[in-house]
Simulated scan of single mutants.
Amino acid sequence: MSSPSTPARGRPARLDPDRTVGTALELLDEAGLDALTMRRLADALGVQAGALYRYFATKQDLLTAMAERMLADAGTPPAAAATPDADWSERLADLARAMRAALLARRDGARVFAGTHSTGPHTLGFAETMIGVLREAGFDDRDAAHTLMAVANFTVGHTLEEQAALRPGSGDPADPERLCQAVTVTPGRFPHLATALPTLTGTDFTAGFEFGLRVLVQGLRTLDRTGHRHGYAAGHGGGGRERS
């Protein structure tokens, strides 16, 4: 008896969105985003390339579905994010960590996710959870929405840089000596930058992520969650009347 992934002799391969996305993610892990083409995916599925467009009109549609699948576990992370009586900041941080872990679990995961706008249940569930944490903490609707975007953009951007610094296919950090050699910094010309170079060219990506996350949370704490913002001008451009 043939399986869904192995067509019976003389019959066309069975094709469905779930299997297509799963196979696309497997190819992503094997060869990276640049090598993932609709033709290569069709070959792996044993179908004609045109058959894929029945479910995904463009490659971008496929990437969006892949991004949605990657967030399958990020909306319900363990630890503080799932504990209602935990501090809102730790719940927020755990959600960001879960998102980073989901992107790191796939080769070029952040590149796939960047620029997609999924409306699937996993993406919406993640957004619902984060906004719920913030609203329960007293943030108004606008601040909660802006925070969601700020945290997501920081997490995706950091993970993009993190994955770019990994050797293709190896998963091992790039050689820090090579990174140092690629940056021509002399103490006489760039004294401050020279002292920071060991950190800038280091490979402790988690430490960098946690620092940025801590800065974000500390900034959020400066918001007065009664609806006023310290030093915040109406109209966002600085030309409006400052809220009292």
Rank of each mutant, 00 (worst) to 15 (best):
T76C: 05
G171F: 12
A196F: 10
L71V: 12
D172R: 14
P198Q: 12
R11T: 13
T123G: 04
E128A: 15
R221S: 12
D140C: 14
A165G: 13
V21A: 10
A234F: 09
V21F: 01
L103P: 04
V156N: 02
T199G: 12
A8V: 06
G22N: 13
D224C: 05
R221F: 00
G10N: 08
D175Y: 11
T226P: 01
A81R: 01
D94T: 08
F113A: 03
R9L: 13
P17K: 08
F154L: 14
D61W: 10
T119Y: 11
G231Q: 09
A102W: 00
V183Q: 11
L223P: 01
H158L: 09
A49I: 01
P173Y: 07
V47I: 11
A81P: 07
V183F: 13
T201Q: 11
A98N: 06
P173L: 09
P78C: 03
A105I: 04
G22Y: 03
A79F: 06
R97P: 03
R225A: 11
A57F: 02
L52M: 08
P17M: 07
R69G: 05
G120D: 12
G219K: 05
A150S: 15
T58H: 05
P12L: 07
T64Q: 04
R54M: 09
A145W: 06
V21Y: 05
A152K: 14
R135P: 02
E68W: 06
A114V: 04
